[in-house]
Write a protein that binds this DNA or RNA. Structure first.
Lengths: 125, 125
DNA sequence: AAACTGTATATAATGCAGATATACAGTTGT
DNA sequence: ACAACTGTATATCTGCATTATATACAGTTT
């Protein structure tokens, strides 16, 4: 498992770790129930405090991507990705509702909004 | 003009002043070109530093709600619909950014998101 | 001139985020 | 049992951004 820390990225270290592991879980590079490097081993590897790797793992667990067995290790959670997906879908729908309301109060056409969304999705790609 | 400062609201004082004046302008309680209380008078009234009221007025001016004549006073700006439109566009873009981020973390395709948006816009029509 | 208006600069207080060390407790393999 | 590994809990340090401030300044009004 490779993690790259970009010191001049501006993003916190724990967040860079979080994102990269999360992405590897989502795209399948990390398999269900696969053991992750221990917080200490990873910290040593990256030459940072293990408290920082712990922070990243805490966030991953909070968001359902991994599970932890104290004194044993941290593991990729079974793909209850469906649950995460449902949560995200709900959040997305809320954002869309807000957009729909804002659209009306500033006389923007539906097509214009669609174009903005297409552009925004490409930006963040 | 009434302003209430809630000390345990968590919101900064300047922000509470900003919001309340802005709302009164939007809902018409304050008329175009009406003179606002001077930053010192308001500060004395609220028993805070006039620097804080100045901060609130600065934000209001930056966002186009009021205009300032140095050494004379601060006045309600004429309602600018174009400005409100710009603000709404910015909010919409923020929502789109959030959506783009959520999309990635649940492996949703860009086209699926666009379909959701189309549907959501029709719902709110 | 007195009393008001907003302005500019410098500074103090606060809070929060990020990263950390150290001491602790459970599991594994020998 | 012991060494070497897991994750946990607490307390702290640092840097930075936000909030709020005082004081000195400059223009307008009466």
């Amino acid at each position: 498992m490779y993690i790259f820390i970009d010191n001049k990225s501006g993003a916190p270290i724990y967040d860079q770790i979080y994102s990269q592991i999360r992405d590897q879980i989502i795209n399948g590079a990390l398999q269900e129930h696969e053991m992750l490097p221990s917080i200490r081993a990873l910290a040593k590897d990256l030459r940072i405090s293990f408290i920082t790797t712990k922070r990243a793992y805490e966030e991953l667990e909070k968001d359902g991507y991994i599970y932890t067995l104290p004194a044993k290790g941290c593991y990729v959670a079974p793909k209850n990705l469906e649950r995460i997906r449902e949560e995200n879908l709900k959040k997305i729908e809320e954002h869309i509702e807000n957009i729909a309301r804002l659209r009306k109060t500033c006389g923007l056409s539906e097509d214009e909004v669609i174009e903005m969304v297409k552009f925004g999705l490409e930006e963040e790609r």
